[in-house]
Deep mutational scan, measured.
Amino acid sequence: ENVVSAPMPGKVLRVLVRVGDRVRVGQGLLVLEAMKMENEIPSPRDGVVKRILVKEGEIVDTGQPKIELG
């Protein structure tokens, strides 16, 4: 899985990584606000952040790609 998608609709509060960052499985990639709760979205695997496809403040839909890992 190279693309991390939104598990639920919500607002991107914070992006916790930058392009080029090495990430580990379970590491937080971003914080999504859904139903007035903050949810940290974890990396599904070890890898390197290739692209960030969302911006802080953006509203995302379920299944929308957010971060691409290499």
Score class of each variant (00 low, 15 high):
10 G>M: 06
17 V>K: 00
33 E>I: 12
13 L>Y: 03
6 A>Y: 06
12 V>T: 02
19 V>Y: 03
9 P>M: 11
19 V>W: 03
22 R>N: 10
44 P>L: 06
27 Q>D: 09
42 P>A: 12
33 E>T: 07
69 L>W: 06
49 V>M: 00
11 K>H: 05
29 L>A: 00
14 R>D: 03
12 V>R: 00
5 S>A: 11
68 E>R: 06
5 S>E: 08
54 V>S: 01
21 D>A: 06
12 V>C: 06
37 M>N: 09
59 I>T: 11
67 I>Q: 02
56 E>A: 11
28 G>N: 09
34 A>E: 05
21 D>N: 05
66 K>W: 15
45 R>E: 05
49 V>W: 00
14 R>V: 08
29 L>E: 01
34 A>N: 12
40 E>T: 15
22 R>C: 13
17 V>D: 02
61 D>N: 13
3 V>A: 07
60 V>C: 09
66 K>F: 15
2 N>D: 12
26 G>V: 04
47 G>E: 03
54 V>G: 02
51 R>Y: 09
38 E>L: 12
52 I>K: 01
66 K>D: 07
38 E>N: 09
4 V>D: 03
2 N>T: 15
3 V>G: 05
53 L>S: 03
22 R>Q: 11
2 N>M: 14
27 Q>H: 05
4 V>Q: 04
28 G>E: 04
38 E>T: 11
55 K>T: 11
15 V>R: 00
16 L>F: 05
31 V>K: 03
47 G>F: 01
66 K>S: 15
49 V>E: 01
46 D>Y: 08
19 V>R: 06
5 S>K: 13
1 E>T: 14
11 K>I: 11
26 G>N: 07
54 V>A: 05
25 V>D: 04
8 M>D: 02
26 G>P: 00
49 V>I: 12
56 E>W: 08
69 L>M: 06
8 M>T: 09
37 M>K: 12
62 T>V: 13
34 A>F: 14
65 P>H: 09
42 P>Y: 12
34 A>T: 13
36 K>Q: 14
49 V>F: 00
56 E>Q: 10
58 E>Q: 13
25 V>N: 09
33 E>D: 08
28 G>S: 13
54 V>M: 02
46 D>Q: 07
38 E>C: 11
52 I>R: 01
42 P>T: 14
2 N>F: 15
15 V>Y: 05
10 G>Q: 05
66 K>C: 15
43 S>W: 01
29 L>G: 00
35 M>K: 10
43 S>H: 02
69 L>H: 01
46 D>M: 07
3 V>C: 14
27 Q>T: 08
36 K>F: 13
22 R>W: 14
30 L>F: 14
45 R>M: 14
39 N>M: 15
1 E>D: 13
61 D>Y: 15
28 G>D: 03
38 E>Y: 10
4 V>F: 06
40 E>G: 04
8 M>C: 11
9 P>F: 10
21 D>I: 08
43 S>Q: 01
64 Q>D: 09
56 E>V: 14
58 E>G: 05
27 Q>F: 04
26 G>C: 09
18 R>H: 11
2 N>Q: 11
9 P>N: 09
19 V>A: 07
17 V>G: 00
9 P>W: 12
70 G>P: 02
1 E>I: 15
6 A>K: 04
24 R>S: 11
69 L>F: 09
43 S>I: 01
41 I>H: 01
57 G>W: 06
25 V>A: 13
10 G>L: 05
59 I>N: 10
10 G>Y: 05
65 P>Q: 06
50 K>A: 10
56 E>P: 12
26 G>W: 04
34 A>S: 13
44 P>Y: 04
58 E>N: 05
49 V>N: 01
70 G>I: 14
54 V>Q: 01
3 V>M: 14
48 V>C: 12
31 V>P: 00
46 D>F: 07
10 G>D: 01
5 S>F: 14
44 P>Q: 05
3 V>T: 11
47 G>I: 01
66 K>N: 15
2 N>L: 13
65 P>R: 08
52 I>F: 01
49 V>A: 02
70 G>L: 13
53 L>E: 03
25 V>M: 13
30 L>M: 10
7 P>L: 11
9 P>R: 14
30 L>Q: 00
31 V>G: 00
55 K>F: 11
23 V>P: 00
41 I>K: 01
47 G>N: 01
29 L>C: 04
34 A>Q: 09
10 G>H: 03
69 L>Q: 01
64 Q>F: 06
27 Q>M: 08
31 V>W: 05
20 G>E: 04
56 E>C: 09
12 V>M: 00
11 K>P: 01
6 A>F: 08
31 V>A: 02
1 E>N: 14
6 A>H: 05
14 R>S: 06
53 L>M: 12
58 E>D: 14
45 R>Y: 14
44 P>S: 05
11 K>E: 03
41 I>Y: 05
69 L>G: 01
40 E>N: 08
51 R>M: 09
50 K>I: 14
59 I>W: 15
65 P>G: 10
28 G>W: 09
10 G>R: 03
32 L>T: 02
36 K>N: 15
22 R>E: 10
61 D>E: 14
23 V>N: 02
27 Q>P: 01
24 R>T: 12
35 M>E: 13
28 G>I: 15
55 K>E: 11
15 V>F: 10
56 E>H: 06
16 L>D: 02
22 R>Y: 14
30 L>I: 12
60 V>W: 05
61 D>R: 15
65 P>D: 07
70 G>H: 14
61 D>G: 12
12 V>Q: 00
7 P>I: 10
19 V>M: 05
59 I>E: 11
65 P>C: 07
7 P>S: 13
51 R>W: 07
48 V>E: 06
29 L>R: 00
33 E>F: 14
10 G>I: 05
9 P>L: 08
14 R>L: 07
66 K>A: 15
18 R>C: 12
5 S>M: 12
70 G>E: 15
70 G>T: 13
58 E>S: 08
63 G>P: 02
3 V>Q: 07
38 E>A: 10
35 M>N: 15
21 D>M: 08
4 V>T: 05
